[in-house]
């Protein structure tokens, strides 16, 4: 059987909110090392990769590898019934066709069990090669969210450029143009407010803002976001999940024909 008890249940709620509009159905791959998920959006432009390590759970048991086929909208409906401070336990039998979500209130005076039907999903896993990215930028996740949202009101695509000075986001549309530059800034008091640029070579790529906007639904998971870019490769937008792993989004660039 599989069982995972997560003291900070809100993390799972946040993960679902971050991906439920991008991916419809996906397998949660459970093994003794944790829970992993990889799924493309329906247009096959973006890829989501989630890792929740066993060590981040208060209790974790997985006797044999299981692929739990889940409709994310339905799982989101179930998790919305958990309080933000609740402990969430996931349970599934090896041969079962359901998953149980148990919610425990912080002072243990309310215990809820929700059972959800699983589905059979043929999932195709893509191999993501280890890449030495030309540019890696870490910045406040709320700032990234703000920039992407602001640019979305002006254009459909953004050019993201990184030089040793910083990262720039540009767009254009019927009403005009916009360009935002965030400079490397390591002299701020709080580490989470820093913007750091690690660069081997300047890089500039074009992406659909609609997807970037969707990724920023993960902002609540982490105060910082890391953007990794290389010429003619998908951008990686990574939100680290404290003590547990990460939620990464890969987005294919738009490329000049």
């Amino acid at each position: 059987m599989f069982e995972g008890r997560l003291l900070q249940g809100s993390l799972l709620k946040k993960v679902l909110e971050a991906i439920k509009d991008l991916v419809t159905d996906t397998n949660f791959d459970c093994s003794e090392t944790g829970i992993a998920l990889q799924a493309m959006d329906s247009s096959h432009v973006a890829l989501v990769s989630l890792l929740l390590k066993d060590t981040g759970f208060d209790h974790f048991r997985c006797d044999r590898n299981l692929a739990l086929g889940i409709n994310l909208q339905n799982m989101s409906k179930m998790l919305k019934c958990a309080g933000n401070d609740d402990i969430i336990t996931l349970k599934a039998e090896d041969e079962g066709d359901t998953i149980t979500f148990m919610f425990e209130s912080p002072n243990q005076d309310k215990i809820s069990d929700f059972e959800m039907k699983l589905m059979d999903i043929d999932s195709e896993h893509l191999g993501i090669p280890d890449t030495d990215y030309q540019a890696i930028v870490t910045m406040p996740s709320a700032e990234f969210q703000r920039i992407v949202r602001d640019l979305s009101s002006i254009g459909d695509t953004a050019v993201i450029g990184v030089t040793k000075e910083g990262i720039s986001f540009s767009t254009g549309g019927d009403i005009g143009k916009a360009n935002i530059v965030c400079r490397q800034n390591t002299n701020v008091d709080k580490e989470e407010d820093q913007t750091t640029v690690e660069i081997h070579e300047p890089v500039s790529l074009t992406f659909a803002l609609r997807y970037l906007n969707s990724f920023t639904k993960a902002t609540a998971l982490s105060p910082q976001v890391t953007l990794s870019l290389s010429k003619e490769l998908p951008i990686v937008v990574e939100y680290k999940i404290e003590k547990m792993g990460f939620l990464r989004f890969y987005l294919a660039p738009k490329i000049e024909e």
Partner: peptide, 14 residues
Amino acid sequence: GVSQRSINSFFAPK
């Protein structure tokens, strides 16, 4: 013009 590439043109099936 620019065209949107698909993600599986970069990452091959495992």
